[in-house]
Amino acid sequence: MCGENTNELDWPQIHALYRLTLPKEGPRPELQADQRPGSWGPVIRYNPATRERSVDLLLWGLIPHWARDPTQFQKTYNARAENLTERRCWIEPFRRRRCLIPAAAFIERKTTGHGPRGGKHAFSFADGRPMTLAGLWDGWRSPGGMWVKSYTVITVEPNPVVAEVHDRMPAILPPEHWSTWLGETPATEAELKAMLRPYHDCDRMVSRPVQLPDRGMSNRDLLDALRPELAA
């Protein structure tokens, strides 16, 4: 599972990296460096109607558009690549609503390998460049008409670096796959699934232990703030 990551990019850097159309609105909200399920993180999407990429803050923890009670979907922050065409939560987003998630590093709690377990390790690129994780998003509309857009990070089997700490890792997409993953160019289901593999360049990845508190909000915590709207 991938339950934490960090983002060190600001809005202008994200726009430059992913070649996004600059927004016409005023200042955007400050980005959180630490991302956990229940937080709002930057997500890159493609709009086929305008043929433009955009970045917006989405809730980490996908709420399916067909959900009646969104608080029941607290563990949808990861989607296993093997289940994308099997679980109802993922089938339509995989076909129509794929996205990219920028991350400086992803963090896993040690559950495998040698040595004491339980500590957290951060995985990043040795050259300091950001990673781009594969994700899915969906939009859920409350009875009162409010839209909540949310996302999940896709996970795959670990490569040898991550396997020393954990049995899953997020799917990392190189730049040459971004356009196809977003849906800017057509691709078959098999071609999309072929992109979801353990990151191959182990020499480029580094791991380090980190001390991070166990904190964060669940979907229920955040959606409690929307309770009057949800009950409408």
Results as ranks from 00 to 15, higher is better:
residue 2 C to Q: 04
residue 2 C to K: 01
residue 3 G to Q: 02
residue 5 N to C: 10
residue 6 T to K: 10
residue 6 T to Y: 11
residue 8 E to T: 10
residue 9 L to N: 01
residue 9 L to S: 02
residue 15 H to E: 14
residue 16 A to E: 13
residue 17 L to C: 06
residue 21 T to V: 13
residue 22 L to W: 13
residue 22 L to V: 12
residue 27 P to E: 10
residue 28 R to H: 04
residue 30 E to Y: 03
residue 33 A to C: 01
residue 39 S to C: 09
residue 40 W to L: 09
residue 43 V to I: 15
residue 47 N to K: 08
residue 48 P to C: 06
residue 50 T to W: 03
residue 53 R to Q: 05
residue 53 R to Y: 04
residue 55 V to W: 02
residue 62 L to C: 07
residue 62 L to S: 05
residue 68 R to F: 01
residue 68 R to T: 11
residue 70 P to L: 00
residue 73 F to A: 02
residue 76 T to S: 15
residue 81 A to T: 04
residue 83 N to F: 01
residue 84 L to E: 02
residue 88 R to N: 09
residue 93 P to V: 02
residue 94 F to E: 05
residue 100 L to S: 01
residue 103 A to K: 08
residue 104 A to Q: 13
residue 104 A to M: 06
residue 107 I to V: 15
residue 114 H to L: 14
residue 123 F to E: 05
residue 125 F to C: 11
residue 127 D to N: 14
residue 131 M to Y: 01
residue 131 M to P: 09
residue 140 W to Y: 09
residue 141 R to D: 07
residue 142 S to G: 04
residue 143 P to T: 12
residue 147 W to K: 14
residue 149 K to Y: 13
residue 151 Y to P: 12
residue 156 V to Y: 03
residue 157 E to P: 00
residue 160 P to N: 12
residue 174 P to A: 13
residue 176 E to P: 05
residue 185 T to C: 02
residue 189 E to L: 10
residue 191 E to Q: 15
residue 191 E to H: 10
residue 192 L to M: 14
residue 197 R to K: 15
residue 198 P to M: 10
residue 202 C to F: 03
residue 205 M to T: 06
residue 206 V to H: 03
residue 211 Q to S: 12
residue 211 Q to W: 07
residue 214 D to C: 01
residue 216 G to M: 06
residue 218 S to M: 00
residue 219 N to I: 11
residue 220 R to G: 06
residue 224 D to G: 05
residue 224 D to K: 14
residue 225 A to V: 06
residue 227 R to C: 05
residue 227 R to M: 14
residue 230 L to F: 08
residue 231 A to N: 12
